[in-house]
Amino acid sequence: MAHLTLGKVEINRVLERRGPFVPVAMLLPGIAAEFWQQNRDWLAPDFWEPESGAMVGSVQTWVLRSEGRTILVDTGVGNGRHRPTMPQFGGWDTDFLDQLAAIGVRPEDVDVVVNTHLHPDHVGWNTEWREGSWQPTFPNARYLLAAADFAAADPGQAGRPAPRDEAERDRREGDAQLFAETIAPVHRAGQLELWEGSHRIDGSLTLEAAPGHTPGSSVLRLASGTDRAVFVGDLLHSPAQILEPSCNSCFCEDPALAAATRLRVLGRAAEQRELVVPAHFGGTGVSEVRRAGDGFAITRWAGAEH
């Protein structure tokens, strides 16, 4: 999908990178190996690479034009990052800003940046390296982040217990680096807005809490005319989770809550015919779902013809 219009909202997708990432056995350990073979005819090659067993996915930003404003949903990995705890996101050098320019969006044109949650592949282009420091990439934008994720990641928060082991210490150091590079500069510039519960961006777009993957994970709901959509962030990493919604990714911080949130969001999408717009699907990436037994089925993939 390159372009989609829902009601009065225009949507474009800017790909930072697409291809095989981590093995599905690691990413989605709750999904049996035979599931992938049984569904090979539609999972491969857009969502799964049978030869390597890797998830095929995208790191991408959804660009929305709504009520005269330009809104980015998630900002990918970014260039020139050092991510010792997640090396797959380190050392990237992509043409992300050039791709934005190709659809008529300069950094100064962006009005709102939505970070669905605070993970390194969703906040990277919040900032860029300029004049010897990390500075906001989008100088006129209001950056929206759930207060719960800010509080969980802010290394300055008082009352944190000591790390339980070396792995947790390393994770906290990685989180602190991510925060220092991508969130703190925006906060210092006065461009960060923290929200709780829900937050209305405009008459068509509303952020809602969807915790589990992280404490502050959120979804963005679109309602314009008769069209509906929900941008689900990392509630879904693969369309396999639509069929098997109780299965979490290995990155979900509260697995029980993440699964309950996924079931709730997909249930509403099925009932209200909301298009499901995830952060990382390869291929078209936008689907319509319906209930099917204990899970859901994909009724169609949405594209530019919608």
Rank of each mutant, 00 (worst) to 15 (best):
E10P: 05
I11R: 07
G19Y: 07
P20S: 13
L27T: 13
A32N: 14
A33Y: 04
E34M: 12
W36M: 00
Q37V: 14
Q38W: 07
N39I: 07
R40F: 10
L43G: 02
P45Y: 08
P45G: 01
W48D: 06
W48I: 09
P50N: 11
P50C: 11
M55L: 15
V56P: 08
G57M: 05
G57S: 07
V59S: 00
L64S: 00
G68H: 07
R69D: 06
T70K: 03
V73S: 06
G78D: 10
N79L: 09
G80T: 07
T85D: 03
P87Y: 01
F89L: 08
F96D: 03
L97Y: 08
Q99H: 14
A102M: 11
T116A: 02
L118R: 05
H122W: 07
G124P: 01
R130Y: 10
W134V: 11
N140Q: 14
R142Y: 03
L144E: 04
L145A: 01
A148P: 00
A151H: 13
A151R: 13
A152I: 09
A152P: 08
D154N: 15
G159T: 10
R164E: 09
E166W: 02
A167V: 12
E168G: 09
G174R: 02
A176H: 03
L178C: 08
T182L: 06
A184S: 14
P185K: 03
R188D: 10
A189S: 10
G190T: 14
G190N: 06
Q191Y: 04
G203C: 06
G203F: 04
L205G: 10
L205Y: 04
T206L: 11
T206S: 08
L207I: 12
T214Q: 08
V219D: 02
R221I: 12
L222E: 02
A223D: 09
T226N: 11
A229R: 02
V230S: 04
F231P: 10
D234E: 11
P239N: 04
I242Q: 00
S246R: 15
C250K: 12
C252H: 03
P255D: 01
T261S: 05
T261M: 04
R264A: 08
R264V: 07
R268N: 08
R268Y: 07
Q272P: 01
R273C: 00
R273P: 03
E274N: 06
F281D: 00
G283C: 08
V289N: 00
V289K: 02
R291N: 03
D294W: 00
D294E: 15
A302P: 00
E305D: 15
